[in-house]
């Protein structure tokens, strides 16, 4: 009898933690999203879909969704394009390409708050690195983080800088899996460099590209730290991405019902994307060499 129970003892601690802090919270969020509550009142009346309606009727939700989608649409091609270009230059196993890979990867393990603080200085209007360089070559002094058009771009650049190394590592693995014979064949046929890239490399790393694309979109929908530290969603809501809005509604306005409704919406979006991702991994990421 006891022997049959053995495996359950081994999995029990993990299962308890997963249940309490991951699965039950999904149900709790669903429940809270149809109630009105602000942490303080003793009861939380059922209000049906009121919180969702309120969100869908509010300009800030649509602004937030727009900003987040814009962030994703602008940053994904930047990330993937830069990463593929760099990766294709770093596939050889030389000392310098190893070191460069390390350099590009370093930000991925660095504290995001530190990165946000450092880049707040880089893009500071006065005494900032970028404006010092612009000044040197006789250009103006844009107020990067105070300008509604530029602030989102700054966040995109910072996010790209942080995530690029991961994309590069994955692309290198994808590129190295392309059989050398294909390149040899292309060379025999007298393929130009750009042609070989377009006809051989690009189609064969497509699965990797899809994988990274979805990861990048998922990440775009979860960006919070750089927003919270660098712009607080401002100026005038120009960088008020979805998780930042969730934080504001839940932990600054203490509107638990509306915050939970937003959390549920985000959850549905992200799980949908994640399912798409696992289908891609399941289908085929690698072309066997």
């Amino acid at each position: 009898m006891l022997r049959k129970l053995t495996p359950y003892f081994f999995v029990a601690p993990l299962m308890i933690f997963i249940a309490v802090f991951t699965y039950v919270p999904i149900l709790t969020s669903l429940n809270l999203s149809v109630r009105q509550w602000n942490f303080l009142t003793p009861d939380m009346p059922f209000v049906g879909l009121h919180n969702y309606e309120e969100l869908f009727a509010s300009a800030e939700f649509w602004n937030s969704l727009k900003v987040t989608v814009l962030f994703a649409v602008l940053s994904v091609p930047l990330r993937l394009g830069a990463a593929l270009f760099i990766a294709s230059r770093l596939i050889r196993e030389t000392l310098s390409s190893r070191l460069l890979r390390g350099a590009f990867f370093l930000p991925s393990v660095t504290s995001t708050v530190s990165i946000a603080v450092v880049f707040s200085w880089v893009f500071a209007t006065d005494y900032g690195m970028v404006n010092a360089i612009l000044h040197l070559v006789g250009l103006g002094r844009p107020q990067w983080l105070q300008d509604p058009y530029l602030a989102l771009w700054v966040l995109i650049i910072v996010n790209t800088w942080r995530q690029l190394g991961y994309d590069i590592v994955i692309y290198i693995a994808g590129l190295q899996a392309i059989p050398q014979e294909l390149y040899d064949a292309a060379a025999v046929d007298g393929g130009q460099r750009f042609h070989v890239f377009r006809r051989v490399t690009l189609p064969l790393v497509m699965p990797t590209t899809y994988f990274l694309l979805i990861i990048a979109v998922i990440e775009a929908f979860q960006v919070f730290t750089i927003v919270n530290v660098m712009t607080r969603g401002g100026p005038a809501g120009a960088t008020d991405m979805l998780v930042n809005l969730l934080y504001e509604i839940g932990f600054e306005l203490f509107d638990i019902g509306r915050g939970s409704a937003l959390a549920v919406i985000l959850f549905v979006l992200l799980v949908g994307l994640a399912l798409l991702k696992s289908r891609i991994i399941g289908s085929k990421v690698h072309y066997e060499a």
């Binding site: 991951t22 709790t28 969020s29 979860q222 998780v243 934080y247 959390a263 992200l270």
Partner: peptide
């Protein structure tokens, strides 16, 4: 269920875990 947690964004549990 363990593997599925990889798909679940952490924000869904932010308010519930706080409570």
């Amino acid at each position: 269920a363990t593997v599925a947690t990889l798909m679940i964004p952490s924000h869904i549990s932010l308010i519930p875990n706080y409570l």
